[in-house]
Nucleic acid binder design. Sequence first.
DNA 1: TACCCTTTAGTTGTGCACAACTTAATTGTG
DNA 2: CACAATTAAGTTGTGCACAACTAAAGGGTA
Lengths: 183, 183
Amino acid sequence: MSHQPDRPTDPTTDRAAEHAADHAADRAAPEPQPGGDLLRLDRQLCFALHAASRAFDGLYRRVLRDTELTYPQYLAMLVLWEHGEMPVKRLGEFLRLDSGTLSPLLKRMQSAGLVQRERSAHDERSVTVRLTAEGTALKERAQGVPLKAIEASGLAAEEAIDLRARLLRLTAALDAALSEEGA
Amino acid sequence: MSHQPDRPTDPTTDRAAEHAADHAADRAAPEPQPGGDLLRLDRQLCFALHAASRAFDGLYRRVLRDTELTYPQYLAMLVLWEHGEMPVKRLGEFLRLDSGTLSPLLKRMQSAGLVQRERSAHDERSVTVRLTAEGTALKERAQGVPLKAIEASGLAAEEAIDLRARLLRLTAALDAALSEEGA
DNA sequence: TACCCTTTAGTTGTGCACAACTTAATTGTG
DNA sequence: CACAATTAAGTTGTGCACAACTAAAGGGTA
């Protein structure tokens, strides 16, 4: 079951809705405002982000096929290619992931021969993640990935940069809200 | 291990980088352009979307706590609250999910007493998903959710609408690219 | 030194997402 | 009508994400 459905009669997923969406706030309030379907707008917002993220995953899944990397593994490799070896903790800060996710992920990457893990000498609690020769070499085969991705996204470089900035701000705001209230 | 790290020395997750990010393209190219670290920009773009999506999930996880709904279940409920009963197939079109994801998800929602599933009479292949009284009633308790979410996001209504439109376009472009090339 | 508190990885359990597959019902075409 | 192709839902297996927990090391203070 794949993802090019004869779409349902709903503007959210309707291609023709791309401009209509700009007026969704108006349309969503046939009632004055109070009970006015906030849930409807919420749906559209949630969906947009959630769906975009999954669509992006799907794209990378395809583009990364011949590297044998999953998308999250690719993200980890990008950090390691750029910054070199680092402790699991720090990698997790870059990726916004905790050890509950990273430990098994890194174990799989180690099985694939891409990275090596070693207990730090100074601090036995810490584990250093290091690229193997094979992992380093993989960078060459990944050179084409970003271009294919940006191409498929249909975004101009400008738009991409802008979108990224917005999303980073959004993430920061959400994290802040979570940590404040979440005492 | 939680998610407010003493952040690493990387602009992607650095709060002060919110404006600097606007010039990342320039900074990323100390080399002319050709090999110019496209992988670096790619990382920032991927990360932004992936991280924002997960941060959003995290927010909803908290906001939905007293509804006993997970975020994906909430998304399904939003569709059902708005449109009423429908076949699994159509629900999947709204949510951009296939039966491999929906079947177990709906089974859990059924166990929770929120929905009921019934084989269609006209077409024995189809299964109709219907809200139970409890599921319908839950809408009341969820009324506050969107407001809390938009509040935590720090977005103005305008920005939210604009961001949503961009993300919908992005999703459409990615899906199109996937289906074209993926013949 | 002894004790406690913090930090870093890892483990366990649950749920989501998706590919690949199965089963059963329906549709289309000769 | 018969039979192949299509469609809807479900199942299986893998991987990611996260909460809650454990284990072990490090650091600080009485």
